[in-house]
């Protein structure tokens, strides 16, 4: 009994139950849901959406928000595609360049927030517009079509016919993030700054360095998501990232992240992504109107924040 109540206090237990329940219910209604082809489609969606969610999650960890996640991802995506088409750079160099752009955008966000002391909301709203504007200014809203065959092949390759190859970078990022937040000093600094900035400062943590590092991390993860999308779509779309805002908040919030900061979980966020993907897929399988996906996504955010609040009100006993 106490084992169960202990489990129920972990971040991933609730989302895991919800995920299993969702999978069982959808499987009950649809034979094709767990077919290899469908699983592959699910994993494709999860691979990119998980990175989008992580990019926001690390910022939520320090109690801020980043509206420019999609703009950074889009700018990195067209940098990657443009560098290969216009400059003829080999793909690995183009990847480095795109990651560099993501890191630079993130560093700009973090530095501006710390130097000016203005809220992350206003700063990232402004940089959202700046990054998106640069994207449109460079591309004039025209996609890059000249993606090398190797990159296209990477975007469509699978391991054993089921797991898409682009799932591998996502897995590596997940493990690295989990390790960082759990075991590395910088990860603990991030959570400390998120739960109480003032106390963290007094205990000798450099808040400025931590905030800038987190924003660089967010930018790099968003850039990886953009690069993977280019590989998968086989085209450098300037509109990549336009619809990331809600996606980026949905999964961490469903996974129980506290928006005030100091408390995030990589595994629970990943499960949040899975829940969103399964439900979106179910709507398609049951040929429910695709327009309703937006409604369901919004309703899920509301339900999740409501549940998190209820959980926070329960008296805490035993190990948390």
């Amino acid at each position: 009994m106490s084992r169960i109540s202990q489990l129920s206090r972990t971040d991933w237990f609730g989302p895991l139950l919800a995920t299993l329940l969702a999978i069982l219910v959808v499987r009950g209604f649809s034979e094709t849901f767990l077919s290899p082809y469908n699983i592959q489609i699910l994993l494709l969606a999860i691979a990119v959406n998980a990175l989008i969610a992580f990019s926001q999650m690390v910022i939520i960890a320090i109690g801020q928000m980043n509206l420019s996640v999609g703009a950074i991802g889009g700018l990195a995506a067209i940098t990657f595609a443009g560098a290969m088409e216009v400059w003829g750079l080999p793909a690995p160099l183009a990847v480095m360049l795109a990651l560099g752009v993501g890191a630079a955008c993130g560093a700009m966000n973090g530095a501006l927030i710390r130097i000016t002391g203005i809220s992350a909301f206003v700063i990232t709203l402004a940089t959202l517009s700046i990054f998106k504007g640069i994207n449109l200014g460079l591309t004039e809203a025209q996609p890059f079509y000249g993606i090398p065959e190797g990159v296209k092949a990477f975007g469509n390759a699978t391991i054993l016919g089921i797991v898409p190859l682009i799932f591998v970078p996502t897995l590596l990022v997940s493990i690295a993030l989990w390790y960082m937040l759990r075991r590395l000093p910088v990860g603990r600094f991030i959570l400390a700054v998120g739960s109480n900035e003032h106390a963290a400062e007094l205990s000798g943590i450099s808040v400025t360095a931590t905030v800038v590092i987190v924003h660089v991390l967010s930018g790099v993860i968003a850039a990886i998501a953009g690069i993977l999308l280019v590989a998968r779509l086989e085209i450098g779309q300037p509109s990549i990232g336009d619809d990331w805002l809600i996606l980026s908040f949905a999964a961490p919030v469903i996974g129980g992240a506290v928006l005030a900061g100091g408390h995030v979980s990589v595994s629970a966020t990943l499960l949040g992504v899975v829940i969103v993907a399964v439900i979106t897929q179910a709507l398609v399988l049951f040929s429910i109107d695709p327009f309703l996906v937006q409604v369901v996504l919004g309703a899920m955010i509301l339900a999740a924040v409501g549940l998190n609040r209820l959980r926070a009100h329960q008296p805490v006993s035993g190990a948390g």
């Binding site: 109107d289 409604v295 919004g298 309703a299 509301l302 924040v305």
Partner: peptide, 23 residues
């Protein structure tokens, strides 16, 4: 009623209102 910040509430309702309208 929820006591949550309007950022997250209106982020969700933005998706809901627009989705219902388009539907």
């Amino acid at each position: 009623r929820s006591g949550l910040h309007s950022f997250i509430i209106t982020l969700a309702t933005m998706s809901i209102f627009f989705g219902v309208m388009i539907f």
